[in-house]
Amino acid sequence: MKLSKSPWLLHYDASSCNGCDIEVLAATTPRFDVERFGIINTGNPKHADILVITGGVNNQAKSVVKQIYSQMPEPKVVVAAGICACDGGIFKDCYNIMGGVDKVIPVDVYVPGCAVRPEALIDGVVKALAILDQKRDAMKSHAACEINYDKNSDTKEKNQA
């Protein structure tokens, strides 16, 4: 079973004007219904596979964003929703804005727009799902290597001795 069939989504507002945030919420409601991809909106980072993040990230939100990202289990994907999350947007010149989520955590998918349109966001999330699967496959092959490594651990110790 692929992880992308039932991913859980976490949303955080990192200093946006909340226009994108209400569009993220709108994407979960009947007209756009992102839940038809098996996605559930969760409030707990430790349950989440996809982080949808809005806003240009200010000084105070920086540590919160890092904290939330580190609490999410691997594999995980980050979707930057809206132009502010992509590069700071209209607030780029503000003294308190870092200018984009990728200044703080790695971003997998950029969805521009002011505000981001729900259709575009769904498109971005679906792209993120494919990346999530790739990351999981990579982890699997990585895990397989580790098991092989363990099998040879005796020889390794002998070599070192």
């Binding site: 607030f91 503000c94 003294y95």
Partner: peptide
């Protein structure tokens, strides 16, 4: 947490 400082723009 969302203070941007847009009045200074």
């Amino acid at each position: 947490f969302v203070h941007r400082g847009l009045e200074k723009l």
